[in-house]
Computed example of a mutant assay.
Amino acid sequence: MTYAEEGARGFFRGMIPPLITVNGGFKYNTFADVLRVSSLSGGTSGAFIALLSCPLELVKIQRQLEQVMLKNQMKAGQISETQLAQASSWRAVKQIVQRKGVLGLWSGVTCHSARDALGTGIYFGGYESMKRILSKEGTSSGPIIHFMSGGFCGILSWLIVFPVDAIKPIYKRIL
C-alpha cells in the first residue's frame, strides 16, 4: 500500500529525526552493545555498498576470465594480437547486457551482498571491540590503539570472508 501511494521514499518518511536522536543519545554501556551496534551498522553499510559495487566486480571477474581465454586462444593461433587488444571493460559491460539484460550486471548480488555485509559487519564490530579492549577505561584511544584495532579487524574479517570471496566468482560464472 505504501509503495503504491508514495513509492520507495514512503518507507523512509519520517526516519531522520528518530535516527538523529537515537544515535546522538546512545551510550555504549557494555561490550555487547559496542559489538552489536558496530556489527549491525557495518553489515548494513556493506549490504548497501554491495548494490553499487556488484556490477564493477562482475566486470572485473569477466575481464580476468576473458584475458585468460584470449591469451590461450592467441597461443593456439586462433586469434590475433589485435583481437586481444580490442578487449575492454566497456566491451565486457556490453556483452553482459546483451546476454542477460541490464539487470545481468547484478548477477550474483545475493552472494556479493552477503559477503560484504558479513565482512563489513565483522570489520566494524572487530574494530570497535578491539579499540575498547585496548583502551583504558575513561581514556581516549591513541594512534597505536587505532593501528592495532585496524590490523586486528582487517585480519579477522578476511579470515572469515576469504572463503566466500573465493567462491563468489564461481557462483557468478554459473549465473
Rank of each mutant, 00 (worst) to 15 (best):
P17C: 13
D165F: 00
G138V: 02
V109M: 08
P18D: 12
A117T: 08
R173A: 13
G125H: 00
I167P: 00
S157C: 15
L65T: 03
L51G: 15
G108L: 01
A166K: 15
S39M: 02
K75E: 12
I155E: 00
E66T: 13
T30I: 06
F11R: 13
A8I: 15
F31R: 06
I133K: 02
R132T: 08
G125P: 00
D165C: 00
S107N: 10
A50I: 00
P169M: 07
I96F: 03
C54M: 09
I79V: 12
L56A: 14
G138P: 05
Q98E: 11
L159Y: 05
L70D: 12
F31M: 11
I96T: 10
E137M: 06
S89K: 05
C54G: 02
L84F: 14
Q64M: 08
K172H: 02
F11I: 10
T110Y: 09
Q62W: 13
Y123I: 03
Q64K: 12
G77C: 07
G25Y: 12
P17Y: 10
E6G: 03
K172M: 13
G108V: 01
F26Y: 15
R36N: 05
G154T: 11
Y28I: 03
G43H: 04
G101M: 07
P169D: 06
G101L: 03
S39F: 00
D33T: 04
E81L: 10
G24V: 06
F11K: 13
H112Q: 08
S113A: 13
I20Y: 13
S141V: 03
I160R: 05
I49N: 11
V161Y: 09
